[in-house]
Design a binder for these strands. Structure first.
Lengths: 225, 225
DNA sequence: GAAAAAACAAGAGCAGTGCTCTCTGTATGG
DNA sequence: CCATACAGAGAGCACTGCTCTTGTTTTTTC
């Protein structure tokens, strides 16, 4: 291994450790991540952290990408089953479990954007993994004849969704893309509400059951059976 | 008007002005509201603001309550029409318009909670106005025979929702409460995603159309026609 | 192998933050 | 009329993100 290779590896390790400490802080403190506190925890000067991340926002961006990818991995691994419906329910349930296990990380990616923070281009790729997974899974079900016919959608947004469908899931009718996206938005709304305390006072005991009920509704709008 | 009445009135006006300035700051800056900046804008010392709000969190709480009520008013006023479906679509569309007009205020109430901020009891009442409006409107439609029959739900969450139904919309079957809440969560998810940039790259032109499509889906799950 | 260049780390410092404490006027209530 | 409660100001504490300068170490280049 070359000398420059060593340096690069040490740098990568350092970067990872900073992110790990930051993730720990995020889990306990919440979204107002303090670079200084992270540096303190690592026993280094705060200015030294700036060798690895140009700003607090850049560190946040890195953590957002990591979170998107962790969630994407989780959802993809869970999206198994004997039917499209089963795969959909398993995937969405895994997304919920992931969010419940680390609410702050969920808030980081699906909560309100950090003030002054504009999501850079690097985040859009990983950010679409879950919705693409759903669209893909629905397309599979469609090709297996598992989708109940529904009337095709019309309107300008239908045209826009046709373009999206052609790019990501060619061959799938636009209404399936629309319904998949709609299901994903329902998913994220249901999880965010549960995590952010919007459900307090109504469903307290059987939130999993209520969530599955909602996802079954979303699936029925898609036509999954 | 008594002398103490004057003092109380001045205090109320002062409180309102602080909130107004804070709202202006929120609209431009985002969620990291600075008490000092608000005080500066009002030409007073930051310490003087603490005569009116014990902490930044308390000011935020006041603004959250105001935002909930403003949104509640908007939704209630818009929930008119000749059918339950029309009322539902009008109300949800008004909610979306309100959120688009003031994204930061929407983020304040439906985005990720401010770090370290625990929503006090005062916010739960105003916070349920929109979902209660939907449930109420659905119950009206139910009593007018505008709801297509669907099978009743089962499970523990169904029992919990029955209790909620008995309290807020007595006489309505629990499945309507479940579907109303589900619709509301879909609503908030769709709006948050649109506001927080989750839709970037897919539906750009006809977001209103896509939103209405989604709300029609939610309405069909309720059985509204 | 020595010199030059690049990277790393630390510390001081700036401007901002929430919040507290103390002090001073002033308006209110008895 | 006077004691009191209250509004406001200012200084100060501990914290933040970030920059700039200084010194040290490591890597590259000759």
């Amino acid at each position: 291994m070359t000398a420059s290779g060593v340096r690069a590896r040490v740098r990568a390790e350092m970067t990872d450790e900073i992110k790990a400490v930051a993730r720990r802080h995020l889990a306990t403190e919440g979204a107002n991540l303090s670079l200084r506190a992270v540096a303190r925890d690592m026993g280094m000067a705060s200015s030294a952290v700036y060798r690895y991340f140009a700003s607090r926002d850049e560190l946040l961006t890195a953590m957002i990408i990591d979170a998107y990818n962790a969630l994407g991995d989780t959802a993809e691994q869970a999206a198994t089953g004997n039917s499209g419906l089963e795969r959909f329910l398993n995937a969405t349930s895994a997304v919920r479990d992931w969010a419940l296990a680390d609410p702050h990380q969920w808030a980081l990616i699906y909560g309100s954007p950090v003030p002054g923070y504009q999501a850079p281009q690097d985040t859009v790729g990983p950010g679409t993994r879950v919705v693409l997974l759903i669209a893909d899974l629905v397309k599979d079900a469609y090709e297996n004849g598992e989708i109940t016919d529904r009337e095709e959608i019309t309107g300008r947004f239908a045209e826009e969704l046709r373009a999206v469908a052609d790019q990501y899931t060619p061959g799938a009718p636009p209404r399936l893309v629309a319904a998949s996206m709609s299901a994903f938005l329902h998913l994220s709304g249901a999880i965010s509400a549960e995590l952010f305390g919007q459900l307090t006072g109504s469903v307290e005991e059987d939130r999993r059951g209520f969530f599955e009920y909602q996802m079954r509704g979303a699936a029925s709008l898609i036509g999954l059976r």
